[in-house]
Structures are given as structure tokens and as C-alpha cells.
């Protein structure tokens, strides 16, 4: 590596903002100092050029996190609000879901204009714990927001994650899961809906380390003209993880020829007795269905919204908490009606 990396203003601002940081934030600071922000040249960022997206960031900012005081006990409903102000900022937290406990965690993100927010969560699920993790990333001010999570499950633990991302200047929801098999279950779902000039990136890695694990993943997305959706999904199955049953599906709709959707589903399998599959399909709105609906009197924008909603809603339908499920579906509907 050359020692002559010239930092961008955003990189300098982030390094500055994390002066004296410890733990994950110190690692982020060091990585930024050493390598800069990731660009298209990094395999894991090839469709999400962070350095470029952050080129309007010039000063340190603040990340505010609310809701962390809620005790993590059985039946807890934790609402975290994570807001990145203008400028470069980071925050992190860790949670332990106690053995046998069932916990709902809702994360609501927002990033102001010219923000570069970095949020990291380390979560451990103890034996037979259940976590329902819901992520909502709205796009009002269109800043850059990067969420990353490291989730480790113990035997018998269940993780159900659902994300709803309307994109931002760049929005990335990155999830790394360590799956021990042995009765543990990982269920990852996501929806993205992108208006013009919005970018959303769903990146997940599920690492199966023990036998008999079950993983299911369904990500659905839609992008309007000049919207850019990215899906990177990876299942790693160690040699010890025999009888893993892991299925990944990404399906997306291009609402315009000028939409861009990039997908890379990957399986990396070292065990020989497994059932693993991935599917990826890109399509367009069904023009025949659209005409049928209009022939019945439903105006084109409403018909389009109904068709997109019925396509996208599937991952959200599986949210266990009815209030949350309806909340997310209502947000999706509102956003669809405003789609350009």
C-alpha cells in the first residue's frame, strides 16, 4: 500500500469526529485513516461508492441515539432513534438478548443533508432467545447513512429481521450473522423502494458454522428512474455445517428504463450435504395488469401503486407485531403515492 493516501474532506472530518474514540469507532477511524472511505474498487462496495456519495461532507457532525436505556428483558420493545446531523459522525452500541427472552428491536434512521452517519450494532442472542429486528430508513433529507450489524446466535436462537429502506444519497444496511445451526433460525427480509436519485444497498452475510441451520431470506425492491438499488447476499456454509437449509431470494422491479438495480447473490459452500439455493429476478411492471386495472376505472398512478405495493409487501407481511406491520405497510403506501 502506498503511504501517500490523500484524504478527502469527508475522510478528514470523520477522522476528526472520532478523535479519542474506542472500540468499533476507533476501528472505523483507523480504517478511514489507513484506506480512506471505500470506493467502487472495493469488492464489497462496488455498486455503492461511499467516498463519492460523501463528497459534500466537510466537517464533523453528531450522531444522536435515543432509546438505549430500555432494559433488554423478556418481552421488551426497544425503539432506537438514530439520527445523523450534517457532517461526519458515528455511534455504536451492543445488546445481549438473554437466554429464552423474546425482544423486539425497532431502529429508525435518519440522516440530514450532507451527513455521513455510521451506525454499528453488536448483538448477541443467547440460547433460545428470539429477536425481531425492524429497521426503517426514511429518506427525507437524503444524507448518507451506513448501518452495520454483527449478530451472533447461540443454539436455538431465532432472528427475524425486516428492513424497509427508501434510500438516501446513499443508504446501506449491512448485516453479518453468525449462525451456529443446532436449532437456530435466521429469517432476513427486506424491502426497498427508491425514487429518483435515491440509493439503497442491502448487504448481508450469513455464516453457518454448525450443523442443521435454517436460513431464509427474501428481499424485494423497486426503483424509479435514476433510483439505484443494490443487493449483495452471501451465505457461507462451513464444512461443519452439514444439513444446512438456506434459501435466498431477491426480486426487484425496474419502474423505468433509467432505474438501476445490481444484485449479487452468492453461496460459498464447504459442506457436502446441504440444501442451499438462491434466486434473483429483475422485472418490470406488468403492463397488461396495468391496462386491466385502468379499464376498470382505476387511474394509472393508483393502479401502478397498487401493483407495486402488492409486489413489495410480501416480506413485511411476515412481521409478527401487527402494529409494526401496519406501520411499515402504511409508510410504504404513503411513499408509493408520492413516487415520481
Amino acid at each position: 500500500m502506498t503511504a501517500t493516501l490523500t484524504h478527502t474532506p469527508a475522510e478528514l472530518a470523520l477522522i476528526d469526529a472520532l478523535d479519542g474514540a474506542t472500540g468499533w469507532q476507533a476501528q472505523l477511524r483507523e480504517a478511514t485513516r489507513r484506506d480512506g472511505l471505500p470506493t467502487r474498487r472495493h469488492e464489497l462496495w462496488k455498486w455503492s461508492d461511499l467516498r463519492r456519495a460523501a463528497n459534500d461532507v466537510t466537517a464533523p457532525g453528531r450522531m444522536t441515539v435515543t432509546g438505549l436505556e430500555t432494559p433488554v428483558t423478556d418481552g421488551a420493545h426497544i425503539e432506537l432513534g438514530v439520527t445523523a446531523s450534517t457532517g461526519a459522525s458515528a455511534a455504536d452500541a451492543s445488546l445481549v438478548i438473554p437466554a429464552g427472552a423474546s425482544v423486539t428491536l425497532v431502529e429508525r434512521y435518519s440522516a440530514e443533508a450532507a451527513a455521513l452517519g455510521n451506525w454499528h450494532l453488536a448483538i448477541t442472542l443467547e440460547e433460545n432467545a428470539r429477536l425481531d429486528r425492524i429497521i426503517i430508513a426514511p429518506d427525507e433529507a437524503a444524507g448518507v447513512f451506513i448501518s452495520s450489524a454483527e449478530i451472533t446466535l447461540a443454539q436455538g436462537a431465532h432472528l427475524h429481521q425486516r428492513s424497509l429502506d427508501f434510500g438516501g444519497r446513499l443508504s446501506r444496511i449491512e448485516t453479518h450473522v453468525t449462525h451456529p445451526g443446532e436449532g437456530a433460525l435466521v429469517d432476513l427480509g427486506g424491502v426497498y423502494l427508491l425514487d429518483s436519485d435515491r440509493h439503497a444497498d442491502t448487504t448481508t452475510v450469513v455464516h453457518h458454522t454448525g450443523p442443521g441451520g435454517v436460513t431464509q431470506q427474501l428481499v424485494k425492491g423497486a426503483a424509479a428512474a435514476k433510483g439505484h438499488g443494490v443487493f449483495q447476499g452471501k451465505f457461507i456454509v462451513d464444512r461443519a455445517a452439514q444439513q444446512t437449509d438456506a434459501r435466498m431470494t431477491h426480486r426487484a422491479m425496474m419502474l423505468d428504463d433509467r432505474a438501476e438495480i445490481d444484485a449479487k447473490p452468492e453461496l460459498e459452500i464447504y459442506a457436502d450435504d446441504v440444501q442451499c439455493a438462491h434466486g434473483n429476478a429483475l422485472g418490470a411492471l406488468d403492463e397488461t395488469a396495468l391496462f386491466y386495472m385502468r379499464q376498470r376505472g382505476i387511474p394509472a398512478p393508483r393502479a401502478r401503486a397498487l401493483l407495486i405495493e402488492s409486489f413489495l409487501a410480501e416480506p413485511l407481511d411476515a412481521i409478527a407485531d401487527e402494529t409494526l406491520r401496519e406501520d411499515l405497510k402504511a409508510q410504504l403506501r404513503t411513499r408509493l403515492e408520492a413516487l415520481s
Partner: peptide, 19 residues
Amino acid sequence: VEIPGVPTITFLKEALNAQ
């Protein structure tokens, strides 16, 4: 035409009220 995800009742009510 088949329209997955849209219940017939919902569809017809939308259509009637839109008209």
C-alpha cells in the same frame, strides 16, 4: 388478467369508487 397480491374485493371496490 391475473393480479397477484390484490384481493378481488379490494380491486372491485377501488374500481367502483374510482369511477
